[in-house]
């Protein structure tokens, strides 16, 4: 039997909104560690890794490891039926091919349950080694989303370049070119407004903006985003999920031919 209960159900709604455009079907792995997922987009260019630790839930029971294959668009449809203040419970019994989502209003005067069919998914799990990154940028997530959105009206790709001067986001297209430079700024009133750049080596990498824009769907989850880069390695774009875990997106770089 597997059961989790999350009082702040809106977090789960936001998590689904952050991954459903990137991945169609995915296996959720349930274990004593927590509720997790690793899935690639259909072209094997981007990957999303989600971890919600068991300690972050108000109630978490997992008698044995369980993999639940779900269509994320359908799961998002069901979670959309939960109110933003609702408590969400996810339940699955051993040996059944369904999962139940239960939504309780804060005053307990409305209780809904939605049952969804599970599916068998052949998942390709990638082994991602721990890496020391040459440059790590922490910046306001809304600012990063704004930059990706603005640059996608100029071009299809973004060149991200980290130097001692700061981090430069550049795009080029038929109508012209754009450069946005963000400098380190740690002297802000609120820590969530800070931009911190840790650089061991200067790094320049090119990425498809379509994927970067898709990652920024996670912006409502966290005030800050962390972008980790090394030469010739996929970038990691990470959003923390309120003391419970993270969503990490990996994106393979474009290379000059």
């Amino acid at each position: 039997m597997f059961e989790l209960r999350l009082v702040q159900g809106s977090l789960l709604k936001k998590v689904l909104e952050s991954i459903k455009d990137l991945v169609n079907d995915a296996n959720f792995d349930c274990s004593s560690t927590g509720f997790s997922l690793q899935a690639m987009d259909s072209s094997h260019v981007a990957l999303v890794a989600l971890l919600l630790r068991s300690e972050g839930f108000e109630h978490y029971r997992c008698d044995r490891n369980l993999t639940m294959g779900m269509n994320l668009a359908n799961m998002a449809k069901m979670l959309k039926c939960a109110g933003n203040d609702d408590i969400i419970t996810i339940k699955a019994d051993d040996g059944t091919d369904t999962v139940t989502f239960m939504f309780e209003s804060p005053s307990q005067d409305k209780i809904s349950d939605f049952e969804m069919k599970l599916m068998d998914i052949d998942s390709e799990h990638l082994g991602i080694p721990e890496a020391e990154y040459e440059a790590i940028i922490r910046m306001p997530s809304a600012e990063f989303a704004r930059i990706c959105r603005d640059l996608s009206s100029i071009g299809d790709t973004v060149v991200i370049s980290v130097t001692k001067e700061g981090v430069r986001f550049s795009a080029r297209g038929d109508i012209g070119a754009a450069n946005i430079v963000c400098r380190q700024n740690a002297t802000v009133d609120k820590p969530e407004d800070a931009t911190i750049i840790e650089m061991q080596e200067p790094v320049t990498l090119t990425f498809a903006l379509r994927y970067m824009n898709s990652f920024t769907k996670a912006t409502p989850l966290a005030e800050q985003v962390t972008i980790s880069m090394s030469s010739d390695l996929p970038v990691v774009v990470e959003y923390k999920v309120a003391g419970m875990g993270y969503i990490r997106y990996y994106l393979a770089p474009k290379i000059e031919e």
Binding site: H44, V45, E124, L126, G127, T206, A252, K254, I255, E256
Partner: peptide, 14 residues
């Protein structure tokens, strides 16, 4: 002109 690499070029399949 640039070409798109794939994640499987960097990470191994488990």
């Amino acid at each position: 002109c640039s070409s798109q690499t794939m994640l499987t070029e960097f990470f191994s399949m488990n």
